[in-house]
Each structure stands twice: as structure tokens, then as C-alpha cells.
């Protein structure tokens, strides 16, 4: 799978992961420990933040595997930086990435419209929820509470990761720095007609 990848694309995913790690660490997470008291639902609405890297990377690079790889790399870098959640992040990253990848694979890696990106966000949400159901033992929770959790997570995946990912990537594309990546070439192809 990695044969067709340019090194600069792999490194791009990795440096993007670091950017998101830093933004999360210094900007979003500050003073957030206390939400732990609220229970597992506290983070649901913001869960999409975790999926956004895979959607941005796939939207820019457009190669099979971009979503899984970027999400797994992000998790690996979090572990290296010293995230106390540790190795299980890599597993959950892999699974979230697979969720997003599934959406892109279903469209044959040919479409990158807003709805495919939203679908990818939802895919990540569903996959990660299934994983959480097993690992964190959500089976002990009542179905209505679970439905609420899943609903929030899917919403977050669709809005923050799907729309948000497109919004950020389009902003980045406008800066002209993405020359040499699939997203710019496609833009040129459509503008020529």
C-alpha cells in the first residue's frame, strides 16, 4: 500500500498530526479535566476533533489508505509526545481511521464532495463507538443513554470532522501552499474543464 506514496505525503500527515496535537494540547484541552466528572458523555460533542485529521489528509492526498494511516500516525505521535492514555490510542486511532476510510472506499476514492466527507466523519463516529462499546463496556449502560451518546458522536463527527475538515482544507487550499498534492491537480483539471 505504501509503495505508491511519496515520502512528502507521509511526512505531511505526520506534521499535520503534530499541529493538531499542539492545538488540542494548548487550546482546546486547557482546564478540561473536570468534565471527567460528567462521565463518558462529556466528550461526545467534541469527539469529531479526533477524526478531522483523517478527513483533511484524505481530502488533500486522495490515495487509498490516507484516512487510516493519518489517524494511526496521529495516535502514534500522541503516544510519543507522552499522552498518558498510551498504546490503546493507537488501536482506537486505527479503528477511527478505518471508519473514515470505509466511506471513501465505498465511493471508490473518486468523490470528495462535502457529503462524502460528512459520511467519513459519521463512519469514524460509528466505528469508534463500536470499539468503545467493547473496550469501555458500554453494554452496562441503558439503551436510551447509549442512543444519546451515539447521536452526539455522529453529529460531532459529521459537523466537526466532515464539514469542519472541508472548511479547514478549503481554507488551506486557497493559500496556494498545497501545490503538488492531488487536491490542487484536481482543481486545475476542473478549471480547465
Amino acid at each position: 500500500m505504501l509503495k505508491s506514496w511519496k515520502l512528502k505525503e507521509v511526512v505531511l500527515m505526520s506534521v499535520f498530526s503534530v499541529v493538531f496535537a499542539v492545538v488540542y494540547l494548548l487550546f482546546v484541552h486547557v482546564g478540561n479535566i473536570w468534565s471527567g466528572f460528567i462521565g463518558p458523555i462529556a466528550y461526545e460533542w467534541i469527539f469529531g476533533i479526533w477524526f478531522i485529521v483523517s478527513i483533511i489528509c484524505m481530502y488533500i492526498i486522495r490515495k487509498p489508505g490516507a484516512a487510516v494511516l493519518s489517524e494511526t500516525i496521529t495516535a502514534a505521535i500522541e503516544v510519543m509526545i507522552g499522552n498518558a492514555v498510551g498504546p490503546r490510542l493507537i488501536l482506537s486511532g486505527l479503528i477511527q481511521g478505518l471508519g473514515a476510510e470505509a466511506a471513501f472506499a465505498a465511493t471508490g476514492y473518486k468523490r470528495f464532495n462535502w457529503w462524502v466527507l460528512v459520511l467519513a466523519g459519521i463512519g469514524s463516529a460509528v466505528f469508534s463507538f463500536a470499539y468503545g462499546f467493547f473496550v469501555s463496556g458500554y453494554a452496562a449502560l441503558s439503551p436510551s443513554y447509549l442512543a444519546l451518546m451515539l447521536g452526539l458522536r455522529v453529529m460531532s463527527g459529521a459537523i466537526i470532522a466532515g464539514f469542519g475538515g472541508k472548511w479547514v482544507s478549503d481554507g488551506l487550499l486557497a493559500t496556494g501552499t498545497l501545490r503538488g498534492y492531488a487536491i490542487s491537480l484536481e482543481k486545475r483539471a476542473t478549471s480547465i474543464g
Binding site: 512528502k8 511526512v11 505531511l12 505526520s14 506534521v15 499535520f16 503534530v18 499541529v19 499542539v22 492545538v23 487550546f27 479547514v168 481554507g171 488551506l172 493559500t175 501552499t177 498545497l178 503538488g180
Partner: peptide, 14 residues
């Protein structure tokens, strides 16, 4: 915040 950081990241990555 993200756009300047990501734009710099693209350059650095290459």
C-alpha cells in the same frame, strides 16, 4: 490558527 500552522506544516513536510 490552524491555517497558518497547516500552511507552514505543508512547507516543512516537503
Amino acid at each position: 490558527l490552524l491555517i497558518p500552522l497547516l500552511a507552514a506544516a505543508v512547507r516543512k513536510a516537503e
